[in-house]
Protein backbone atom coordinates (compact mmCIF):
# COMPACT_ATOMS: atom_id res chain seq x y z
CA UNK A 1 0.00 0.00 0.00
CA UNK A 2 1.81 3.13 -1.21
CA UNK A 3 0.06 5.26 1.40
CA UNK A 4 2.11 3.47 4.09
CA UNK A 5 5.09 2.32 2.04
CA UNK A 6 5.81 5.85 0.83
CA UNK A 7 4.78 7.57 4.03
CA UNK A 8 8.24 8.45 5.24
CA UNK A 9 9.37 9.93 1.94
CA UNK A 10 6.22 11.70 0.84
CA UNK A 11 4.36 12.91 3.96
CA UNK A 12 6.10 16.29 4.00
CA UNK A 13 5.37 16.93 0.34
CA UNK A 14 1.73 15.81 0.76
CA UNK A 15 1.18 18.03 3.79
CA UNK A 16 2.95 20.98 2.22
CA UNK A 17 1.11 20.94 -1.10
CA UNK A 18 -2.21 20.23 0.60
CA UNK A 19 -1.70 23.28 2.80
CA UNK A 20 -0.70 25.33 -0.24
CA UNK A 21 -3.66 24.35 -2.40
CA UNK A 22 -6.26 24.02 0.30
CA UNK A 23 -5.04 27.34 1.69
CA UNK A 24 -5.40 28.83 -1.79
CA UNK A 25 -8.93 27.46 -2.05
CA UNK A 26 -9.78 28.77 1.41
CA UNK A 27 -8.45 32.25 0.66
CA UNK A 28 -9.76 32.63 -2.90
CA UNK A 29 -12.99 30.65 -2.69
CA UNK A 30 -13.84 30.66 1.02
CA UNK A 31 -12.76 34.21 1.85
CA UNK A 32 -13.09 35.71 -1.61
CA UNK A 33 -16.04 34.30 -3.51
CA UNK A 34 -18.29 32.80 -0.85
CA UNK A 35 -19.02 36.09 0.99
CA UNK A 36 -19.84 37.66 -2.38
CA UNK A 37 -22.16 34.83 -3.31
CA UNK A 38 -23.82 34.90 0.10
CA UNK A 39 -24.16 38.67 -0.08
CA UNK A 40 -25.88 38.30 -3.45
CA UNK A 41 -28.19 35.62 -2.07
CA UNK A 42 -28.94 37.62 1.06
CA UNK A 43 -29.58 40.84 -0.83
CA UNK A 44 -31.85 38.97 -3.22
CA UNK A 45 -33.77 37.39 -0.32
CA UNK A 46 -33.99 40.78 1.36
CA UNK A 47 -35.21 42.43 -1.83
CA UNK A 48 -37.83 39.75 -2.37
CA UNK A 49 -39.01 40.13 1.21
CA UNK A 50 -39.05 43.93 0.85
CA UNK A 51 -40.93 43.73 -2.43
CA UNK A 52 -43.49 41.41 -0.89
CA UNK A 53 -43.86 43.72 2.09
CA UNK A 54 -44.23 46.72 -0.23
CA UNK A 55 -46.85 44.89 -2.28
CA UNK A 56 -48.71 43.98 0.90
CA UNK A 57 -48.54 47.59 2.11
CA UNK A 58 -49.76 48.83 -1.28
CA UNK A 59 -52.64 46.37 -1.16
CA UNK A 60 -53.60 47.57 2.31
CA UNK A 61 -53.34 51.20 1.20
CA UNK A 62 -55.53 50.45 -1.80
CA UNK A 63 -58.08 48.76 0.46
CA UNK A 64 -58.07 51.74 2.81
CA UNK A 65 -58.37 54.11 -0.16
CA UNK A 66 -61.31 52.15 -1.50
CA UNK A 67 -62.98 52.15 1.92
CA UNK A 68 -62.45 55.91 2.24
CA UNK A 69 -63.78 56.39 -1.26
CA UNK A 70 -66.84 54.31 -0.41
CA UNK A 71 -67.49 56.33 2.73
CA UNK A 72 -67.04 59.56 0.79
CA UNK A 73 -69.31 58.35 -1.98
CA UNK A 74 -71.98 57.34 0.51
CA UNK A 75 -71.73 60.71 2.20
CA UNK A 76 -71.98 62.55 -1.09
CA UNK A 77 -74.88 60.43 -2.16
CA UNK A 78 -76.67 61.21 1.08
CA UNK A 79 -75.93 64.90 0.60
CA UNK A 80 -77.25 64.76 -2.92
CA UNK A 81 -80.39 63.03 -1.69
CA UNK A 82 -80.86 65.71 0.93
CA UNK A 83 -80.36 68.44 -1.68
CA UNK A 84 -82.85 66.85 -4.02
CA UNK A 85 -85.36 66.44 -1.21
CA UNK A 86 -84.90 70.06 -0.14
CA UNK A 87 -85.25 71.24 -3.72
CA UNK A 88 -88.41 69.20 -4.12
CA UNK A 89 -89.82 70.66 -0.94
CA UNK A 90 -88.95 74.20 -2.07
CA UNK A 91 -90.47 73.59 -5.45
CA UNK A 92 -93.62 72.20 -3.88
CA UNK A 93 -93.88 75.18 -1.57
CA UNK A 94 -93.32 77.66 -4.38
CA UNK A 95 -95.93 75.89 -6.49
CA UNK A 96 -98.37 76.00 -3.60
CA UNK A 97 -97.76 79.68 -3.01
CA UNK A 98 -98.23 80.51 -6.65
CA UNK A 99 -101.33 78.38 -6.80
CA UNK A 100 -102.69 80.22 -3.79
CA UNK A 101 -102.01 83.59 -5.44
CA UNK A 102 -103.56 82.42 -8.65
CA UNK A 103 -106.58 81.11 -6.77
CA UNK A 104 -106.98 84.37 -5.00
CA UNK A 105 -106.82 86.29 -8.26
CA UNK A 106 -109.33 83.93 -9.79
CA UNK A 107 -111.63 84.32 -6.79
CA UNK A 108 -111.42 88.08 -7.01
CA UNK A 109 -112.15 88.02 -10.69
CA UNK A 110 -114.98 85.60 -10.18
CA UNK A 111 -116.42 87.82 -7.50
CA UNK A 112 -116.15 90.83 -9.77
CA UNK A 113 -117.71 88.97 -12.63
CA UNK A 114 -120.51 87.75 -10.41
CA UNK A 115 -121.05 91.30 -9.20
CA UNK A 116 -121.24 92.54 -12.74
CA UNK A 117 -123.66 89.80 -13.69
CA UNK A 118 -125.80 90.68 -10.66
CA UNK A 119 -125.93 94.39 -11.55
CA UNK A 120 -126.57 93.53 -15.20
CA UNK A 121 -129.39 91.27 -14.16
CA UNK A 122 -130.78 93.91 -11.81
CA UNK A 123 -130.47 96.52 -14.58
CA UNK A 124 -132.17 94.14 -16.97
CA UNK A 125 -134.99 93.52 -14.49
CA UNK A 126 -135.57 97.26 -14.02
CA UNK A 127 -135.63 97.69 -17.76
CA UNK A 128 -138.17 94.89 -18.07
CA UNK A 129 -140.38 96.53 -15.38
CA UNK A 130 -140.27 99.81 -17.24
CA UNK A 131 -141.04 98.22 -20.57
CA UNK A 132 -143.74 96.07 -18.97
CA UNK A 133 -145.30 99.10 -17.24
CA UNK A 134 -145.31 101.06 -20.50
CA UNK A 135 -146.75 98.06 -22.29
CA UNK A 136 -149.34 97.53 -19.57
CA UNK A 137 -150.38 101.27 -19.71
CA UNK A 138 -150.74 101.13 -23.45
CA UNK A 139 -152.64 97.82 -23.35
CA UNK A 140 -155.01 99.31 -20.76
CA UNK A 141 -155.63 102.48 -22.81
CA UNK A 142 -156.14 100.55 -26.02
CA UNK A 143 -158.41 97.89 -24.64
CA UNK A 144 -160.31 99.66 -21.91
CA UNK A 145 -159.73 103.19 -22.92
CA UNK A 146 -158.35 103.81 -19.50
CA UNK A 147 -155.56 106.19 -19.07
CA UNK A 148 -153.26 104.73 -16.46
CA UNK A 149 -150.45 106.86 -15.22
CA UNK A 150 -146.92 105.60 -15.10
CA UNK A 151 -146.71 105.19 -11.36
CA UNK A 152 -149.79 103.04 -11.14
CA UNK A 153 -148.70 100.91 -14.05
CA UNK A 154 -145.28 100.38 -12.56
CA UNK A 155 -146.71 99.42 -9.19
CA UNK A 156 -149.08 96.97 -10.86
CA UNK A 157 -146.23 95.43 -12.92
CA UNK A 158 -143.97 95.16 -9.87
CA UNK A 159 -146.79 93.46 -8.02
CA UNK A 160 -147.19 90.90 -10.84
CA UNK A 161 -143.40 90.32 -11.31
CA UNK A 162 -142.46 90.00 -7.69
CA UNK A 163 -145.66 88.39 -6.52
Amino acid sequence: MPQIAQLATTYSSQVFWLLVFFGLVFLVVGRGFVPKVMAAVDSRDKQIAADLAAAEAARKAADAEEEAWRVQANKQRAEAHALVAAAKLDAAKATEARLAVANKTIDVRLAEAEGRIETARAGALGEIELVAAEAAGQIASRLAGLSVDDVTARAAVKEVLHG
Binding site: T10, S13, F21, L24, V29, F33, V37
Partner: peptide, 23 residues
Protein backbone atom coordinates in the same frame (compact mmCIF):
# COMPACT_ATOMS: atom_id res chain seq x y z
CA UNK B 1 11.68 18.56 4.40
CA UNK B 2 11.10 17.12 0.98
CA UNK B 3 8.37 18.98 -0.87
CA UNK B 4 8.62 17.39 -4.29
CA UNK B 5 5.79 18.41 -6.61
CA UNK B 6 4.14 15.03 -7.03
CA UNK B 7 1.22 13.69 -9.03
CA UNK B 8 -0.78 14.09 -5.81
CA UNK B 9 0.19 17.75 -5.62
CA UNK B 10 -0.69 18.16 -9.29
CA UNK B 11 -4.20 16.81 -8.73
CA UNK B 12 -4.64 19.00 -5.68
CA UNK B 13 -3.62 21.91 -7.90
CA UNK B 14 -6.12 20.83 -10.57
CA UNK B 15 -8.80 20.49 -7.90
CA UNK B 16 -8.04 23.97 -6.59
CA UNK B 17 -8.01 25.41 -10.11
CA UNK B 18 -11.30 23.80 -11.17
CA UNK B 19 -12.91 24.80 -7.88
CA UNK B 20 -11.76 28.41 -8.20
CA UNK B 21 -12.99 28.57 -11.80
CA UNK B 22 -16.33 27.01 -10.84
CA UNK B 23 -17.05 29.22 -7.84
Amino acid sequence: YNIAFTNSALWMAITAFVLIVFV
